[in-house]
Computed example of a mutant assay.
Amino acid sequence: MCGKLKLSTWKVQLAVLQAMKAYFQGLLLLEKGNEDMNALSQILTEACTALTYSLENKSYSSVRTEALSVVDLIVKRTGESEQWDCMPVRSREQLQRSLSTLQSDSRPELRDKAQELWVELECECSHSG
């Protein structure tokens, strides 16, 4: 899925983002008590890198909106399962950079959500590590 996000039309990107959302909703590695930290870390690294392209998509707000909802889901589930250590610092920083670009988006709901997630990632970065 991650590979398809970069070089596809916006409709394909949207479909991939929706599939990613479903994937992360059901991902058992994001349950509390997960023992396979390496696998989760690899998945999050790949996903975060791919999501930055969609978050920074200047042309389609639908792609940015969907990417933001995937990031929101990842942040929520990672927090709920207390697995921040599985998200490499570099991935968090990548997401934060992309969220920063969204904070100047023309759509206020995207700006606000990006700001909220940026702050959440910032808090988690300073607590773990």
Rank of each mutant, 00 (worst) to 15 (best):
4 K>A: 05
4 K>T: 02
4 K>W: 02
6 K>E: 01
6 K>L: 02
6 K>C: 02
9 T>Q: 05
10 W>N: 08
15 A>Y: 07
16 V>G: 03
19 A>Y: 05
19 A>P: 02
23 Y>W: 09
24 F>M: 10
24 F>A: 05
27 L>E: 04
28 L>D: 12
28 L>S: 11
29 L>T: 00
30 L>Y: 01
32 K>G: 01
33 G>M: 03
36 D>P: 06
36 D>E: 10
39 A>D: 10
41 S>L: 00
43 I>R: 13
43 I>N: 08
49 T>E: 05
49 T>L: 06
50 A>S: 10
50 A>V: 02
51 L>T: 00
51 L>S: 01
53 Y>E: 03
55 L>E: 00
56 E>L: 11
58 K>P: 05
59 S>P: 00
59 S>A: 09
61 S>H: 10
66 E>H: 10
66 E>S: 14
67 A>H: 08
68 L>F: 07
68 L>T: 07
70 V>A: 13
72 D>P: 09
74 I>M: 15
75 V>Q: 10
76 K>N: 13
76 K>H: 11
78 T>C: 09
80 E>L: 06
80 E>K: 08
80 E>I: 01
82 E>I: 11
83 Q>P: 05
85 D>C: 14
86 C>T: 01
88 P>C: 08
88 P>R: 11
90 R>G: 08
91 S>C: 04
92 R>C: 13
93 E>K: 09
93 E>C: 06
95 L>S: 09
96 Q>S: 04
96 Q>K: 12
98 S>E: 01
100 S>A: 13
102 L>C: 05
103 Q>I: 03
103 Q>H: 11
103 Q>W: 06
104 S>I: 15
108 P>K: 13
108 P>D: 11
109 E>L: 11
109 E>I: 10
111 R>L: 04
112 D>H: 13
113 K>G: 02
114 A>N: 02
114 A>H: 01
116 E>Y: 11
118 W>N: 15
120 E>I: 09
120 E>V: 10
120 E>F: 06
122 E>D: 15
122 E>M: 13
122 E>C: 13
124 E>H: 14
124 E>F: 12
128 S>R: 13
128 S>Y: 11
129 G>A: 12
